[in-house]
Design a protein around this nucleic acid. Structure first.
Lengths: 245, 245
DNA sequence: CGACTTCTTGAGGAGACTCAAGGGTGGTGG
DNA sequence: CCACCACCCTTGAGTCTCCTCAAGAAGTCG
C-alpha cells in the first residue's frame, strides 16, 4: 500500500487541501478490492461503467478494434482514477487489466454527485485532473501522428518518468516498469519486433537503455531534446479555483 | 450566427436544462469577437491561456513539434469550448486557427468559478463534455496507432459526420467541410500526397468520395464496418448528475 | 531440467514518405 | 472575355519505416 499522499497526489498537484477536504476525499472511497497480476478489472463494452481509484500497483487501459488490433491507452499509477472516460457513455470504452498485483477502491457515482454539490473546489480539481489527462492524450496523439518509432518510445518513457517521479520524488534515472516490450508496442502502436530494434538503436545512441523492464536514462536533457515535445508545467492554485471551506 | 440551441448543444446532449440554467450559461459568455478565415486566435506556448465558446464557423487546433511537424488535434464546430486543455498548464498547448470566418465569445475564468460554486449541475455537465472530448481523443489515438490510412480517413469522416449531425439533424450524407486534403493529412498524421491516394482508393471502393471539400458517404453502415470503431452512445441524465435548481 | 515467457535476428514485403513535376479550378485584373 | 495567378490536387519514381513470418536465444519459474 502506498501512503495517503500518493492516493491523492493528482489533487494536490494543483492546490493544497484543507483537512476537511482531505476527509471529503476519503469519503469518496467505497469498497476496497484487490486483483492479481493479469486479472481483468473491467471489460470493454460492458454496460455498467464504474469508477475506481487506484491505491497501489499498475494497471493498463486498452481498446480493442474490430479487427483484433489492440491499442493500449495508458498505464495507470497509484492515485489515478480509472473509468472516468466511460462516464459520458452507456458502455465502457476500455478494458482494465492489472499489470501487477493491485489494490483499488471503487468510487460510487453517488460520491461524485456529492463532490459537485458540496465540494466545488474538489470538483474543480477533478476537472483539472481530467484536463491534464487530455493533455497527456494530446501529447501521445501528436507523437504517434508525427514521429517515427524512436521518438515515440522516448516520449513514452519521459511521460512515465515524470509521472513516477511525482509519486516518488526520490526516484532515480533508472527504474523498473512492469511492462514487456510487447506492452510498449501496444502503447506506441508498433509491433514487439520493431520495439526491440528501436531499443537497440536507442541504446546505441545512448538515449535510453532497456533490460527486462529496467529503464535507464543517461541524460534527461538529451532525451527531452530528442523527443521534441515541449515540457508541460502545471498551474498552482489558479485564480478561478473555488475557495476551500 | 447559429441558433442558441447550437451554442449549448454540448450541454443539452446529456440533460435538459431549466430556464435558470440556460440563463446561467448565457452569463458565461464574455466579450464577443470575430475572426476571418486563416486568422490565428491563440498561439501555442503563449503564457495566457484563455477560454472561448465557438458561436459560428470552424476552427482548428494544432500542436507543433520541435522539428516543425504539425499535428492537428481536432476541428471545432459551433458549440465547442476552446482552450480547456490548456487550463491545467501555465502555457497554452495548442494553436487555434480559424478555418472559416468565425464568431466566438471569450469565457472569463471567473465565470468558470461561478459555475462550480453556484451551478453544480452545469459544472457536472461541463465535466461530462470534457470526458467526451477525451473519448474522441482516445478513438483517434486508437485509429492512429492501429490502422492504416484508409481507416483513419474513414474514422475521421465518421466523427465529423456525427458531430455535424448533432448540430443539424437535417444534415445529408453529402456535406461540405472547409478543409483541404493537407488538413486531413494533418489530422490523421499523413502527408497530403498520401491522403490524395487514399481518397482515390476510398472512391474506388465506394466508401467515401471527396471533391474539393465536399464529402459524400454512399452508405453509413458500410463505412462504419470498414473503420471498425465501436459506435459511442451518450448517456442521458445519469443518476449521479446533481439536480437542477 | 523442462516449459514459459520474453526478447532477438533475418528476410521479404507493404504502406507511407520525399521530391519533383504537372493539371485543375476559381478568382482577379486588364 | 481572356490571361494570369494562387491554391489545391494528382501522378510518378525512388526510399525508408515498419510489418509479417519464422526461427532461435536467453532468461525465469516450478
Amino acid at each position: 500500500m502506498m501512503s495517503v499522499r500518493t492516493e491523492i497526489a493528482r489533487f494536490t498537484a494543483f492546490a493544497s487541501l484543507h483537512d476537511t477536504e482531505l476527509l471529503a476525499l476519503k469519503e469518496l472511497a467505497g469498497r476496497r478490492r484487490a486483483f492479481g497480476r493479469g486479472d481483468t478489472i473491467q471489460l470493454q463494452d460492458d454496460d455498467s461503467p464504474a469508477l475506481f481509484l487506484l491505491l497501489s500497483g499498475w494497471t493498463a487501459s486498452t481498446v480493442n478494434l474490430a479487427g483484433g488490433a489492440r491499442q493500449m491507452l495508458k498505464v495507470h499509477l497509484p492515485g489515478d482514477m480509472l473509468g472516468l472516460p466511460s462516464l459520458p457513455l452507456t458502455r465502457t470504452i476500455d478494458t482494465l487489466v492489472a499489470l501487477t498485483d493491485v489494490e483499488l477502491c471503487s468510487v460510487p457515482e453517488r460520491a461524485l454527485r456529492d463532490l459537485f454539490e458540496k465540494k466545488p473546489r474538489l470538483a474543480a480539481l477533478l476537472f483539472l485532473i481530467t484536463q491534464e489527462e487530455r493533455v497527456t492524450l494530446i501529447d501521445r496523439l501528436t507523437v504517434m501522428g508525427r514521429t517515427e518509432g524512436g521518438r515515440r518510445v522516448a516520449a513514452l518513457i519521459l511521460q512515465l518518468y515524470e509521472r513516477l517521479r511525482r509519486n516518488d520524488p526520490q526516484m532515480e534515472l533508472s527504474f523498473r516498469v512492469p511492462l514487456t516490450q510487447a506492452d510498449v508496442g501496444d502503447l506506441i502502436g508498433m509491433t514487439m519486433v520493431h520495439v526491440s530494434r528501436i531499443f537497440q538503436q536507442l541504446r546505441t545512441d545512448d538515449l535510453v537503455s532497456w533490460s527486462r523492464g529496467v529503464i535507464a536514462i543517461p541524460s534527461l536533457d538529451r532525451l527531452r531534446d530528442y523527443c521534441g515535445l515541449p515540457a508541460r508545467q502545471l498551474v498552482w492554485e489558479p485564480d478561478w479555483l473555488p475557495r476551500g471551506d
